[in-house]
Structures are given as structure tokens and as C-alpha cells.
């Protein structure tokens, strides 16, 4: 399964004014890391509301880029250290892929 949907991501970027592509990438990276961590904290704290909230926000974020791999990890069991590590790796890989796709569209 691909990390993101490249066509959707590109069409998303291309539909926006070029000057906001870079801020969008930064915001995406920040949001993904932030809400990913919130989800892990909520799972660790066994807080169902917080888990639901975090998953919902991540879903909203990932939907912009078809980032189904992150969603798949988020929906899985995140109790073990291995699973949490994989989740982190998945988020970082997704961010890297989005940045790589966006790079040519960012005005110099």
C-alpha cells in the first residue's frame, strides 16, 4: 500500500496558490507529528475520547493526501513499543514523501 496518493496530493497542491505550498507542507508536517503524538499519548493514557479525537483529526489530515498508511497504523493496535515505533516511522516517511512531491512546486 502506498504511503500517499500522489495524484491527489499533486492536485491538492496545484489547486492552491503556489505561495502557500511551502506553508502547507510545513503545517502538514507539524500537524501529522503533533496529532500522531497526541494519539500515542491518548492510547498510553487509555483516554477513549482523546483517542477518538486524535484519530479523527489524523483522518482529516491524511485525507488531503490519501495517506492511507498512516491511517492504517492509527487504526491498529498501538499498545506495543514496536507498534508505536512503526507509527512514528510511517508518519515521518509520509511527511518526506509529501515534501518530495511538493518541492518542485514551491516557488524559488
Amino acid at each position: 500500500m502506498d504511503l500517499i496518493d500522489p495524484e491527489l496530493t499533486l492536485s491538492q497542491f496545484e489547486a492552491l496558490p503556489p505561495e502557500i505550498v511551502a506553508p502547507l507542507c510545513e503545517a502538514t508536517a507539524t500537524d501529522l507529528r503533533d496529532w500522531g503524538q497526541r494519539l500515542l499519548d491518548a492510547v498510553a493514557g487509555d483516554d477513549p475520547d482523546a483517542i477518538r479525537r486524535a484519530r479523527h483529526s489524523l483522518k482529516g489530515l491524511c485525507g488531503n493526501f490519501g495517506a492511507s498508511a498512516v491511517m492504517r497504523c492509527a487504526d491498529g493496535d498501538l499498545q506495543s513499543a514496536d507498534a508505536r515505533a512503526r507509527f512514528h516511522e510511517c508518519i515521518e516517511a509520509t511527511i518526506a514523501t509529501i515534501l518530495a512531491l511538493a518541492a518542485p512546486l514551491i516557488p524559488q
Partner: peptide
């Protein structure tokens, strides 16, 4: 909208 990413996307669309 609370998510920064979505705020940027929506704002960009609306400006367009």
C-alpha cells in the same frame, strides 16, 4: 477549523 493544514487548504481554495 482547528487543524493548520486544513486551514491553509481551505483558505487557499477560497482565495482562488
Amino acid at each position: 477549523e482547528d487543524l493548520a493544514t486544513n486551514r491553509i487548504v481551505i483558505e487557499g481554495c477560497l482565495r482562488k
